[in-house]
Write a protein that binds this DNA or RNA. Structure first.
Lengths: 206, 206
DNA sequence: ATTATCTATAGATCTATAGATAATGC
DNA sequence: ATTATCTATAGATCTATAGATAATGC
């Protein structure tokens, strides 16, 4: 039974993930998730109690993939901007690779929902506390040097993540839209990355 | 009766607009709109037949405000970039002024929904056909001169609107978020405007 | 006589649970 | 004996409409 136990639970999680990403929390339906998973919908409640809980479980897990391999990033004595670039690349890979609706999802369901907004930071704090600490140190260093105006660390992170998610959402919408060729989309994607960092640093200039 | 007729219809429209902007199409409820408007919910169907229709009616009307006073923009012999800046400013004023959830709404309900995506273009084409024609001419001119790679006019417009709506959504989320001061938000807002145009022109370079 | 408004309710969903039945571990 | 699964259904909504009642125009 243990074997089947794990399997069913995972099948439900996968089905729920697809459903939530595709339709967002409110439009996602328990019956639809059950249908995707090929189980009776009472199973969703058996394993996860409620829709709310199923959602939370998925995204606490999903967000863990947000944590990239930061290990070596701080060993290289990189400049602040280069560290930001490194982190952004990891974030970008995560947002872009998984499912092209992911950035859009992060923006609409996580960032714009105060109740869910903390999830990202909780996961970061929990899974990469040392890296967060190092980054915070670097930020405060820049502030002390007068390169950046005083800003709260979490606000700073919020800024980075939100701008990224928004840009990638826009690119996803354009990609999915009409006759725009892939070449142009790739171009946009490459260019936004550097622009977003410059934009934020500019906005944070004292 | 004519007097009361118009009033009720407008009260419903206003209530529906608030509800749709706040919650999005799916989460908006007819009963909730009726409650906001202070009328029996059957009234919504009396005037607008269905939820779908009510939505369409509101946003066809709302989107008309998207059309700024472009009249003088093309008289001044401005460069292509400056025309883009002028149009962007008008778009920005519209998105920013109305209701701070407007950019977010445009992104999530209009742009990311294929069925609704045409609304913006329909309205533009209907209410500012000459300006659209002039802009199209300018774009094709830039393409002919080799400053911009060949791109469909509607795709180009889509790009501009989507990037703007996304950036403003991000800024709105940050604004609404935490302890970020208004100064910083204003900075971000000022800077993104020029960045977005540069980003798009860069991405469109041949 | 026509138009506007309200009350009541049909018919579809949707989340969640109760209770029966099947599968596994000991 | 315990765990997993299914069927059936309660209880809340939600959209939409039917039909009665009130308000206005002629």
């Amino acid at each position: 039974m243990k074997i089947n136990d794990v399997k069913t639970e995972d099948i439900i999680l996968k089905a729920a993930e697809d459903e939530f990403l595709e339709k967002g929390y409110s439009n996602a339906k328990m019956l639809s998730i059950a249908r995707r998973a090929g189980v009776a919908h009472s199973m969703l409640h058996y394993y996860f109690r409620s829709k709310e809980n199923l959602f939370q479980t998925i995204f606490a897990r999903k967000m863990q993939l947000f944590i990239p391999t930061y290990e070596d990033l701080f060993e290289k004595q990189l400049s602040f901007v280069d560290v930001l670039r490194g982190i952004r690349d990891a974030r970008d890979r995560f947002l872009w690779s998984q499912n092209s609706r992911m950035p859009y999802f992060i923006l609409t369901e996580i960032l714009s929902n105060k109740k869910n907004r903390g999830i990202i930071f909780e996961v970061l704090e929990k899974n990469a506390p040392q890296q967060m600490f190092r980054l915070k140190e670097m930020l405060n260093d820049e502030i002390a040097k007068g390169n950046i105006r005083p800003v709260d660390f979490l606000d700073f992170m919020m800024l980075l993540i939100t701008m990224d998610a928004a840009s990638l959402s826009a690119i996803f919408i354009c990609k999915d839209a009409d006759t725009l060729d892939n070449d142009l989309i790739k171009n946009l994607h490459d260019i936004y990355k550097e622009h977003n960092i410059q934009l934020i640093l500019e906005a944070l200039r004292p």
